[in-house]
């Protein structure tokens, strides 16, 4: 159990959720939005995270379901990773969502929770970065829709009181089989040391990665290098160097190893996408 007391709130609308957050803050209480809860509960149990109020977003109708809507595919932020994986019409999301944690845990982890949570990998965001997706956000100043590339920089840059309602990709994302590779240190059930999603787009090759730099990233400079002329090996080398960020080195994998994995994956990705 969690070794401190808190209030758990189950709002029935985004407005109620935002109001509950505001009221908690006005009372001087620390409030958090809860989605799947796998991170929050396990961290709270070890007192790595504390709060006075938890506001559960899972049952909000606007945060649930997967729908086709006006040329886009909309994923409610409370859609579980297993449901996102099973949906199948965005193959890269199926692959990325289906690799996180294990199958039972994926019944609890939500797309929104994975992206907005504290763990740095946030692999579910990769296809949304790749396909220029958008996010629907609710907050004290009302609702807004923002491009994922605009609001995601290592993590989702939400203002106080805001939460993720849904994510969208264009329907064209369903036509892209793309390229996906993930590598872990030991077993399949592990954090990634390298995850790469690539897709062929009308403007060239796109690529987004997690695990290598310590955060998910899509780099237009790297994509320019991938889409330039040259052999796959040359373009991949230039692309890896073009990413902003330092390749991380820790117990899971040294920087040289991660760089080599990314390089090889990009090269193989180019060969697959270009035939």
């Amino acid at each position: 159990m969690i070794p401190f007391d808190f209030t758990y709130i189950r709002p029935q609308s985004s407005e109620e959720a935002v109001t509950a957050y505001r009221q908690a803050k006005e009372a001087g209480n620390a409030a958090l939005y809860l989605s799947g809860g796998t991170e929050i509960v396990t961290m709270a149990r070890d007192r790595k995270l504390t709060f006075d109020v938890l506001i559960d977003l899972k049952r909000l109708p606007e945060c649930r379901g997967i729908d086709r809507d006006q040329g886009e595919i909309r994923f409610g932020s409370a859609v579980s990773l297993n449901d996102a994986q099973k949906y199948g019409n965005v193959p890269l999301l199926s692959m990325a969502a289906g690799a996180v944690a294990d199958h039972s845990v994926r019944n609890s982890i939500t797309v929104g929770g994975n992206i907005a949570g504290r763990l740095p990998y946030r692999e579910a965001v990769l296809p949304f970065l790749l396909f220029d997706g958008t996010v629907e956000i609710a907050g004290p100043d009302g609702n807004r829709n923002v491009g994922v590339m605009e609001i995601f920089d290592k993590r989702l840059k939400l203002s106080a009181g805001e939460f993720l309602v849904a994510l969208r990709v264009p329907e064209s994302a369903s036509e892209s089989t793309g390229y996906y590779r993930r590598r872990q240190k030991d077993s399949r059930v592990d954090y990634p040391i390298m995850t790469l999603c690539m897709a062929r787009h009308e403007d060239g090759i796109r690529a987004a990665t997690s695990g290598v730099f310590g955060f998910p990233v899509r780099s237009r400079r790297a994509e320019k290098a991938l889409s330039a002329s040259g052999t796959p090996a040359e373009r991949s080398r230039n692309a890896v160097e073009a990413f902003d960020g330092k390749v991380q080195s820790n117990m899971r994998g040294a920087a040289d190893y991660r760089r080599a994995l990314l390089l090889q994956a990009m090269e193989d990705g180019l060969r697959q996408l270009e035939g």
Binding site: Y8, G37, T38, V41, T42, N82, S104, V105, N107, S108
Partner: peptide
């Protein structure tokens, strides 16, 4: 659905 009860809140 199989769920791990150690990170599931009872109130949930």
């Amino acid at each position: 659905k199989p769920v791990k009860s150690c990170y599931t809140l009872a109130v949930d």
